[in-house]
Design a protein around this nucleic acid. Structure first.
Length: 202
DNA sequence: TCACTGATCGTCT
DNA sequence: GACGATCAGTGAG
């Protein structure tokens, strides 16, 4: 198989609005050049965390942990969740405004064998259908916190390898505050999307 | 397919 | 000192 063409996204390609970016990123790719080779995956599920949003880490203001959320759009915010899993977000607003888009699930596009090596015993949709699973599969971790994804480097966003299908909307998963807001986005019918089936219908 | 549980630790109250 | 933007395994329906 010839490797897919992956066009690097520039900052001006990214919508300067959190919800718009969360929708825009469905179908786009995450590319990571590792020592063993390139891994690339197509984003199939995201969640928006807004400036005025009690569920967002940025809600109570700037702290050492959430600082990347207050950076210019296109920066990585990577944090440790439940003491065990690294979660990957893309900052989404103007400098000084705290917001981000959580990447919740991806579909392998290149280097699937390398991803499987990082997630022993997992195959197909089970490889990266969750925010903690995809960071492990793609080799994303604390070293990438604060990284500018639009600057030259080994971790970046790319234009959709395949155009996105219809986008579904639901409430977000795993939160308690502002839980009713329809801020989760996914590619309808894609088997690599996470969550219970009942949340993936609309 | 869903509900429940234990693991595990940095962050903020 | 409590609380998570989770995951994998288990058991019931």
């Amino acid at each position: 198989m010839t490797p897919p063409r992956l066009r690097r996204l520039r900052r001006r390609d990214l919508p300067a609005d959190t919800v718009a970016l969360a929708r825009f990123l469905i179908g786009a790719a995450i590319v990571h050049d590792l020592p063993e080779g390139r891994v690339a995956a197509r984003i199939v599920e995201t969640e928006a965390y807004l400036p005025d949003d009690a569920a967002s880490h940025s809600y109570r203001g700037d702290t050492p942990r959430n600082r990347p959320m207050f950076g210019e759009r296109g920066h990585a915010y990577v944090y440790l969740n439940y003491g065990m899993h690294w979660l990957f977000n893309v900052s989404s607003e103007a400098p000084g405004i705290g917001a981000g888009v959580l990447i919740r699930a991806v579909e392998p596009v290149q280097g699937e064998a390398l991803m499987q090596a990082r997630r022993p015993g997992r195959h197909g949709p089970d490889l990266a259908n969750g925010p903690g699973k995809l960071t492990l599969a793609l080799g994303i971790g604390p070293a990438h916190d604060g990284l500018d994804l639009c600057a030259p480097g080994g971790l970046f966003l790319a234009a959709p390898p395949r155009p996105p299908g219809e986008i579904g909307v639901s409430t977000r998963i795993g939160i308690s505050r502002d839980a009713h807001r329809p801020l989760r986005f996914f590619e309808r019918g894609n088997p690599h999307v996470s969550g219970p089936r009942r949340m993936n219908r609309h």
